Amino acid sequence: MHEHPYAFLALFLGVAVAFPLVLLGVARAWATAFQPRKPSLEKNSVYECGVAPTGDARVQFKAHYYLYGIVFLIFDVEVVFLLPVAVAFTGLSAGALLAMLVFILLLAEGLVWAWARGHLEWR
C-alpha cells in the first residue's frame, strides 16, 4: 500500500501540537506534586527590585505617543511591502504596478489625513 502524500504533514502537526501540551502537563504535575501551596500576604505582594511599592503603579501616557508609534509602524511596514516591488520592478506586470500605485496612494492619503488633523504635531 502507498502512503498518503500528506501523512507526514499530519504526523508533524500532531507532534507539534502534542509536544508542548505534554510538556505543560508535566510542568503542572511537577508543580502540584513538589510545590505545595502556601499563600501569604508576603508572597502575594508586588515585588520591584527589593523596594517596597508605594503609590499607584498605573502610569498614564498621552494618546499622542501611541499615535506617533502607530504612524511610524505603518510607514515602516510600507517599506517592507515596497522592497520586493522595487527589486522586481522591471519584471512586474501592469496590474502589479497598478496595485502598488493604489497602495502608495492610500498611504499618502493616510499621511495627509494625519497631517491635516494635527496628529503629527509634537506637543
Score class of each variant (00 low, 15 high):
2 H>G: 07
3 E>M: 12
4 H>A: 06
5 P>F: 01
5 P>M: 04
6 Y>C: 03
7 A>E: 11
7 A>D: 15
8 F>T: 04
9 L>Y: 00
9 L>I: 00
10 A>S: 14
11 L>C: 05
11 L>S: 14
14 G>K: 05
14 G>A: 11
16 A>D: 07
18 A>E: 10
18 A>Y: 05
21 L>M: 07
22 V>K: 12
23 L>T: 08
26 V>I: 14
27 A>P: 06
27 A>M: 12
28 R>L: 10
32 T>E: 04
35 Q>R: 00
38 K>G: 08
38 K>P: 04
41 L>C: 03
41 L>G: 09
43 K>A: 11
43 K>F: 11
44 N>E: 15
47 Y>L: 10
47 Y>P: 10
47 Y>R: 12
49 C>I: 11
50 G>R: 08
51 V>S: 11
53 P>H: 03
54 T>G: 05
54 T>L: 01
54 T>E: 09
55 G>A: 06
56 D>P: 09
57 A>H: 11
58 R>D: 01
59 V>H: 13
59 V>A: 05
61 F>A: 12
62 K>R: 13
63 A>V: 13
65 Y>T: 06
66 Y>G: 13
67 L>Q: 00
69 G>F: 00
69 G>E: 04
71 V>Y: 01
72 F>E: 08
72 F>N: 10
73 L>R: 09
73 L>S: 15
75 F>G: 03
77 V>H: 04
77 V>W: 01
78 E>S: 07
80 V>M: 08
80 V>Y: 03
81 F>S: 12
81 F>M: 14
82 L>I: 13
82 L>C: 08
83 L>V: 15
85 V>N: 13
88 A>S: 14
89 F>G: 14
89 F>I: 15
91 G>E: 14
92 L>V: 09
94 A>C: 01
98 L>M: 09
102 V>L: 05
105 L>F: 00
105 L>D: 02
107 L>Y: 03
113 W>N: 12
114 A>N: 11
114 A>F: 06
117 R>N: 13
120 L>G: 08
121 E>P: 02
